[in-house]
Design a binder for these strands. Structure first.
Length: 305
DNA sequence: CCGCGTCAAGTTCAT
DNA sequence: ATGAACTTGACGCGG
């Protein structure tokens, strides 16, 4: 069982990725940014290891314009040594990482240009994880995409487009429920494509599937989509931020509701990715709260938290 | 150095 | 058809 966070380490200085504007994305500039970002990833991994965090999402921004034609750098060759070192660190520490393309990566697009971009972006993500030399338990998580006025046809298009992806991408692909496609629909696609489904508890609470099944039912259902090569089942967890629109991720995890949820989960192993603003702070809060004997002393932070 | 306008990408909804 | 929201910070230009 692991609890983790996404992309930015609040507990260290310069804990996130750097980028630049398109007009400044010359080859040398990109190469410098990539070097800086790989060094940042290294510091993030060290920080996670020091603090007992073994689940982490790597930012898609780690390679600026990673799937854009402006970036013609052979970064996976230019930085092969660094990438291998980072992958070795992930493996030797037992950390599990993932990547999560954003709202602009739409695999069920009807516009061929948009689809082409989505495929290129997924190939970029797979190339990065491959360059680390880590196995297919380290996943790429994606939403199903748009509705386009007809969700059934749009799901069919997702399935068709998925089959055209390279085997390397397909082996890492995981799909997740969101405000457009509920967990029941995502589960159907997952079974059809024989890929895992990440159950996003918070999205489900905002946009439940028809019927009155509780979240534990859906955790169990999704569990069956995770095969040996996929690793331990993973779910996403968040809470509503008070005062903001429904669906707005919490600034920080409230411990008691999290514990109430956690202790009603089945006994099976489960990885829980937290999606909150304060990132590793909440991850540490939850991790420490679940330890039977809270430590007297933590790993040395770069910055007090 | 500071402040503020702008930033690759796509879908959806309002006007 | 055009534009804003989504979500949020960071980039980088101009003063």
């Amino acid at each position: 069982m692991a609890i983790g966070y996404a992309c930015i380490a609040m507990g260290i200085n310069d804990g996130g990725m750097r980028g630049c504007m398109l007009k400044n994305a010359a080859s040398t500039r990109l190469d410098q940014l990539i070097a800086v970002n790989l060094a940042t990833l290294n510091r993030q991994l060290d920080y996670n290891i020091r603090n007992g965090i073994s689940l982490f999402r790597i930012s898609s921004d780690i390679i600026p314009f990673g799937s854009h034609p402006v970036n013609r750098n052979l970064w996976w060759e230019d930085h092969a040594d660094s990438l291998q070192m980072l992958g070795d660190k992930i493996k030797s520490s037992g950390m599990r990482v993932s990547m999560h393309p954003g709202q602009y990566t739409v695999l069920n697009a009807s516009d061929p240009k948009v689809l082409k971009n989505a495929v290129a972006d997924l190939e970029y993500h797979a190339r990065f994880l491959d360059a680390l030399g880590i196995n297919t338990q380290h996943k790429i998580i994606l939403h199903l995409g748009g509705i386009y006025g007809d969700w059934q046809r749009s799901i069919a298009r997702f399935e068709e487009n998925f089959q055209r992806l390279s085997p390397g991408v397909r082996r890492r692909m995981v799909i997740e429920n969101d405000e457009k496609y509920d967990i029941a629909k995502v589960m159907e696609v997952a079974r059809e494509l024989k890929i895992p489904a990440v159950f996003d508890v918070f999205h489900h609470q905002c946009h439940p599937a028809p019927g009155d099944r509780d979240v534990y039912y859906w955790v169990e259902q999704c569990r069956n989509t995770w095969q040996n090569d996929d690793g331990v089942q993973k779910i996403h967890y968040s809470q509503q931020e008070p005062g903001l629109r429904s669906g707005a991720h919490a600034r920080s995890i409230k411990l008691q509701p999290f514990l109430d949820f956690y202790y009603q989960l089945p006994e099976n192993p489960l990885d829980i990715m937290l999606e909150v603003k304060d990132k590793d702070i909440s991850a540490l809060k939850c991790i420490l709260a679940l330890q039977p004997d809270p430590p007297r002393r933590l790993g040395e932070p770069e910055k007090s938290i």
